[in-house]
């Protein structure tokens, strides 16, 4: 079942007199439960694509559907509500709120959901257990290592039981050992909790943990082996 669907999406930016078009008439489909990695050189539109799927940016043309909802047609406020209920975001630099404890950081997205305090507590507890950080719940971000911070970030992304989780270079700021721990964690979340993941990475080894790897190059999706992807592989290039 298709969960995320991009149809003929284009996005341009102005940089001085120059217009950059990182995404030009791009289409993509991601099934529920899939783990898709997206690689490509800098400036090829990986993060732009992630931002469009997560609804924090809007395409110039084309449509994006997530679980049947056309998010390109939603107002800014509706998009915020939609993100709260349907999307988890894992950031490269963790982006934890420094004045909140790990528990409070994870709890943030649940505050936006119609949950009782007991339900919220259970969800946060489960999310922290999933990333193995129950014993660090009362620690502030400054008291955590980089890897622990990223695990808190992952717990925050999954606590609201989102339909899709997007990860922007989730291991980009971590050392090799910690990076491997995070990769294992992401794989486990996908396989055990059946979370749909769309991950942007520069690292081919990290990309390899995904069930499907896409390469974005000058507006074209390529298979990881460099060949253009066909329609029946659920990603297409129309430009």
């Amino acid at each position: 079942m298709t969960l995320v669907e991009l149809n003929h999406v284009s996005k341009s930016f102005s940089k001085g007199d120059e217009t950059i078009t990182p995404l030009d008439d791009v289409s993509l489909q991601i099934d529920a439960g899939e783990f898709v990695s997206l690689m490509g050189p800098s400036g090829t539109g990986k993060s732009t694509l992630l931002n469009l799927v997560s609804g924090i940016d809007r395409p110039d043309s084309g449509t994006i559907h997530v679980d049947g909802t056309e998010i390109t047609g939603l107002s800014r406020s509706k998009l915020a509500d939609w993100r709260a209920a349907n999307l988890g975001y894992i950031f490269q630099t963790h982006n934890l709120i420094p004045v909140l404890t790990a528990y409070e950081n994870v709890e943030l997205p649940t505050l936006l959901l119609p949950l009782s305090s007991a339900q919220r507590r259970d969800r946060v507890q489960l999310a922290l257990e999933a990333v193995g950080l129950v014993d660090r719940a009362e620690h502030y971000p400054r008291q955590l290592s980089g890897g622990q911070e990223q695990r808190v970030g992952i717990a925050r992304a999954i606590v609201a039981h989102p339909k899709v989780v997007v990860a922007d270079e989730p291991t980009g700021s971590l050392d090799t050992e910690t990076s491997q721990q995070i990769q294992v964690l992401l794989q486990r979340l996908n396989q055990e909790l059946n979370i749909t993941l769309l991950m942007v990475t520069h690292d081919a080894d990290v990309a390899a943990i995904a069930s499907r790897q896409l390469l974005l190059d000058h507006g074209r999706f390529l298979e990881s082996n460099g060949a253009p992807q066909s329609d029946n592989n659920k990603a297409s290039l129309s430009s």
């Binding site: 509500d81 999307l87 982006n95």
Partner: peptide, 15 residues
Amino acid sequence: VREIATLQAIGFRRR
């Protein structure tokens, strides 16, 4: 700035 953007990305409205 990044923290404020993060809160919005999580789903908090601008208001």
